[in-house]
């Protein structure tokens, strides 16, 4: 369990760690919404501050990318599948075009940027803070049991590193017993998924018991959320930067149109 996974909180003293979690959520949400539709100019404008923050807060990027390597393979798959076309008349001949390549690299870049933003968020935010922020926002929505929902989100996030760790342990144990020699994918998936789910359920049961033994209740002392001047400044600067990005991109696209 001492092994780290990408989506873990790392305690630190950076401004990102101290930023009010409610503001962090707004910033991340806005960044992600813009990233989803961003073109090259916007992507460059968005990636630049993200990279600066990654180096500034010392996110262990190499380790995080290694941990999320399957997602990166998935991006590569998307890129190849959207770029390469098979000629029906001559299936041995693979076609590709530069516009397709540009289009698919943009999609991959968007998804990669969202991944980096997610890593930064998880790196600098405690589950208890995220829960408190979700609860705070849901408080404004009528007829929504905010405490229950925030608890479920908190537990789900709490479980992700454990599940990944369990999966890695099982995978290693199976490799040690030459699972690689079994070519049947159904057998391999069943052999992997069955013990994984069993262990997850067992662990969930133990965690529930451990929580109950410490008087767990929905109605508990929550984290005190406080926003100070720095939080407001970071929010205003970030949102202004995002507005500038959109305006600049609009202007550039109009100029190229003319």
């Amino acid at each position: 369990m001492a092994e780290l996974t990408a989506f873990n909180y790392f305690s630190g003293n950076s401004w990102l760690h101290h930023l009010d979690i409610r503001f962090k959520l707004i910033i991340i949400f806005t960044f992600n919404v813009i990233s989803i539709q961003a073109n090259y100019v916007e992507l460059m404008m968005l990636s630049f501050p993200v990279l600066i923050v990654i180096f500034q807060v010392k996110l262990p990027l190499r380790h995080s990318l290694f941990e999320t390597r399957y997602f990166l393979y998935f991006l590569l798959f998307i890129f190849l599948s959207r770029t390469i076309k098979i000629d029906v008349t001559n299936p041995t001949y693979l076609n590709y075009s530069y516009p397709d390549m540009i289009e698919s690299s943009m999609i991959c870049w968007r998804l990669f940027l969202i991944l980096l933003i997610g890593l930064l968020f998880m790196f600098s935010s405690k589950i208890t803070e995220i829960r408190a922020a979700v609860q705070w926002y849901l408080n404004f929505v009528p007829f929504v049991p905010e405490k229950k929902i925030s608890l479920m989100i908190g537990l789900m996030i709490r479980f992700v590193p454990d599940i990944l760790q369990q999966a890695a342990d099982i995978s290693e144990a199976q490799k040690a017993r030459s699972i690689g020699k079994r070519k049947n994918p159904v057998f391999r998936i069943t052999a992997f998924a069955t013990p994984l789910f069993l262990r997850i359920f067992e662990q969930a049961d133990t965690i529930v018991q451990a929580m109950l033994s410490r008087c767990f209740t929905e109605n508990r002392t929550d984290i005190e959320l406080k926003a100070d001047k720095v939080d407001w400044m970071v929010l205003i600067v970030t949102l202004s930067y995002l507005v500038v990005t959109i305006v600049l991109d609009t202007l550039l696209s109009q100029m190229s149109f003319l």
């Binding site: 873990n8 909180y9 305690s11 405690k126 589950i127 208890t128 709490r158 929580m211 410490r214 008087c215 767990f216 209740t217 109605n219 508990r220 002392t221 929550d222």
Partner: peptide, 15 residues
Amino acid sequence: QTVYDEVAFGPENLK
């Protein structure tokens, strides 16, 4: 997620 959070979990439940 931190040593503080872990120890505070019980007292937080006691409100």
